[in-house]
Nucleic acid binder design. Structure first.
Lengths: 341, 341
DNA sequence: CTGAAAGCGCTTACAG
DNA sequence: CTGAAAGCGCTTACAG
């Protein structure tokens, strides 16, 4: 009583009076069939409750219809970070359209060397992965298509980045022009697992260049390690506010950090931008409606993700590695000045 | 250059000079082969770097070697809750031993009706799922083996529970004997998605019965909705402490809640058990080393999980549903009195 | 103890 | 526009 027989393609073919080939075509190459037969096949398939068996399909095609998404954090972090939510949401949308599944691979802690090879993905997206990360090499060794988003530009793979350096440069320049001379930089601290986020590295360089080009001393910038968690508002703000000498502005490498500082300042009764100007990075949806709205760097993240995924699907479809050098896309960023600075 | 040919079972057979059958046996039925040939096969397989193709195996056997684990919360919650960590850890260990994979199915929000049917699992474990939950029915409809842990005893499936009622009864009785007459009950609030946790339901009944049997009025117990998050220590404690009249003790339906209250009390300078006695439920590892150590109800959770999984693997192996009524295992709980009460 | 053969449920050249 | 046939990489009665 527990094993209902599965309805197979053969059953549908028999019932509809066509060959198995025709049934397969009805799903995978509809234009090869006349409208009439195609409709008849699909109708009888629905009647019988036919569902193509994904495992059989995979065995026949060699495709799993899954992409592996390598993220630089643990799963719990991914689920809480608004930027990651945005990214996952967009990737999810595109993958739905393409009938692809997503397998999230958190790139933290011990990564067993052979793991990636056994993961049944048609291709990989690496998000914010540094060249030194063990997974960067592991993925390359699988010889499967891959693209990188916010990646390390010294890696040889199609890369879809924003212009972190120039974005950061603009942000710092903006504050300098406003007269700020003591600027905290809210950034990520060294991670205990040694993982480096390439984006943040480049943003730091941009800040520093702007200070240098303005003829100001490096000490104008004071790095402060804060966590990218909205719940750490109090701690983040206090860490910045207690610097000696006290800064008049803060540049954050991410909007989450900037919003966290913003909230902390408000709770402490410190006026933004009066007492402390705050500038973020990435332009989260929340940043437009915070109190006050956040000055930050705009980018078309969804658009960039779409581009990257199209590229990946292209590579998967081609299958034969052509040997062109992998493309490097760097999208410019635009400073959106709002009321926090 | 991108498609290395996969080493197949056939390649190994050829190289080792045996039939494909023999190679398959070397992995799946080693006793059918002489020691000598088995060793030879395994050796050449390793030399060639042969890895059995899981998809092909699934197609041939009908087994995916995956169990679906249905949990009553979102993934982020699962990753933060120490009880769930314990459970996942134990399930992971057993599944590793059995070479089974785990697919976590968070039972929250919208659950599409056909979803479960398309999930390629050989069987399911339902954890803390109530009879009214849509997934309870959906899983039953898949007609695949399933077992329940901390389940709703009105459901017809093998059930592995603790004796929530009597455990709660003991806990309440203990406080009553100590002379407490104003007892807060730290429990879960109604969830916005209407999901009910069967275990907590039964625990409430046990508390109430003990009060009744002691001849005390129902108002002795004052339910307070607190969240099962250690980070909510302050809020949890204050909610209890601000009851009017102020309680002298609190019964919590979970150790996480009890620990959270304990921490909140300590930070507020309220002495436990002097000003407030605290009793938990489940005996987390942390509960033995908290300040003060927590009075709680002991259970052998790992043992129970092992039992449940063995039962599930048994059902999967049998494959033919025998029609015995599903077994109901109820493990007794023992009150472990420590210094918090 | 070992092998030849059929089958799991699809896809896809190939031939018509 | 449609069908017969081989194949994806395994497993497993069945026969020896």
């Amino acid at each position: 009583m527990s094993k209902k027989k599965r309805v197979t393609l053969r059953d549908v073919a028999k019932q509809a009076g066509v060959s198995p080939t025709a049934v397969s075509f009805a799903y995978n190459a509809p234009h090869q069939l006349s409208q009439a037969t195609r409709d008849r096949i699909i109708d009888t398939a629905n009647e019988l409750g036919y569902q193509p068996h994904p495992v059989a399909r995979t065995l026949a095609t060699g495709r799993t219809n899954t992409i592996g998404l390598v993220m630089p954090t643990g799963l719990d972090w991914i689920l809480h970070d608004p930027l990651f939510s945005l990214i996952l949401g967009e990737i999810g949308t595109v993958c739905d359209e393409e009938k692809m599944r997503i397998l999230i691979i958190p790139a933290i802690g011990e990564v067993s060397p052979g793991l990636l090879a056994t993961i049944a993905a048609d291709g990989f997206v690496l998000f914010s992965i540094h060249r030194n990360h063990p997974l960067a090499k592991a993925v390359e060794r699988t010889n499967r298509p891959l693209v990188m988003i916010n990646g390390d530009e010294s890696l040889a793979a199609p890369m879809f980045n924003v212009d972190d350096f120039n974005g950061a440069y603009q942000a710092a320049q903006h504050l300098i022009e406003k007269g700020h001379r003591r600027i905290a930089v809210g950034t990520i601290g060294p991670r205990q697992d040694g993982v480096i986020i390439p984006t943040y590295e480049r943003r730091m360089l941009g800040y520093e260049a702007a200070v240098r080009d303005a003829g100001l001393p490096p000490s104008t910038l004071r790095p402060v390690f804060i966590r990218g968690l909205l719940s750490m508002a109090k701690e983040s703000f206090e860490k910045i506010w207690s610097l000696d000498p006290r800064p008049t502005a803060v540049l954050c490498v991410s909007d989450v950090r900037a919003l966290s500082v913003l909230n902390g300042a408000r709770k402490a009764g410190v006026s933004v931008p009066g007492d402390l100007a705050v500038v973020g990075f990435d332009n989260l949806p929340d940043s437009a409606v915070s109190t006050p709205p956040l000055t930050t760097l705009k980018q078309d993240l969804p658009g960039r993700i779409r581009l990257a995924l199209r590229a990946l699907f292209g590579l998967i479809a081609e299958e034969g590695g052509d040997d062109e050098p992998p493309p490097l896309h760097i999208t410019p960023m635009e400073l959106e000045v709002r009321e926090s600075s």
